[in-house]
Design a protein around this nucleic acid. Sequence first.
DNA 1: TATTGTTATACTCTATAACTATA
DNA 2: TATAGTTATAGAGTATAACAATA
Lengths: 147, 147
Amino acid sequence: MSATPEGCARELLEVVPLVMRDIRHQMRNQRSTELTVPQFRTLVFVENNSGASLSEVADHMGLTLPSTSKLVDDLLKNGFVTREEQAADRRRVSLTVTLRGRTILDASRKETLRYLSQKLGSANAEEKVAIIQAMKTLRTVFQESKN
Amino acid sequence: MSATPEGCARELLEVVPLVMRDIRHQMRNQRSTELTVPQFRTLVFVENNSGASLSEVADHMGLTLPSTSKLVDDLLKNGFVTREEQAADRRRVSLTVTLRGRTILDASRKETLRYLSQKLGSANAEEKVAIIQAMKTLRTVFQESKN
DNA sequence: TATTGTTATACTCTATAACTATA
DNA sequence: TATAGTTATAGAGTATAACAATA
């Protein structure tokens, strides 16, 4: 297996959509929680960055402002976040996860992690180390993709 | 970094959507080729499994038959695949990639791989080995995800 | 009857363009 | 004028339900 940038790229292009598809399916089939992947990721971000503006969320998600606005709107309708004006700059919005949002997020995360953990149970120690390492590298490589 | 199934699951859940988002963006912004990720994956599958039926594509993609039917319909409209009845069982369909489809697929693959390779250029040898290993494991774990 | 596929319908995700409000 | 955000509109991706054709 050639550990060249090209070899890695080829593997990523084949395997990442496979894993993503599975995660998406799993989340969709959570009848109790029902968060989509983007909704889940948005809630995680707002939980970790309470008071975030819409632009900050959009930036983190790699989405346009209108897309993010709609995404947040749905979370709002479900009562998972609150949206207020920032006092210092009234154009800006301040987002916070509600108790309800936190509850649903915790449940969804728990269920998804349980599912993924079970799937990864068959991997041996060395393989798991490689996954952890790979994810660490990929995170740094793909994180600041401000296209 | 705990190399437990739970630790791996946590990393996957954070990093995979990040990478997927970047791949999706990159493909969307290919002004020359313009294949979406599902279209790309379908073409790859049909190229490797010439004469495949719709059910086989759906199975590979992890999609329902109606979704797959529509997906293939779009490829057909663009002249990237042909769709015929199978002689042996006329309910079944036989899909083939056209020359045009092959051309666009090659161009798209090349451009995406170039993009990803360039991004992965900053990773050192050990990190690249870990990525290759991780992808290999993930492929086997997530491949036969027939839900 | 069971299987393969399509059509009808709907919802989510995402984008671009046009707009409003605030700075 | 520039920035933050929303609304309008549209296209892709996906699903379920209902159907048609073939086995």
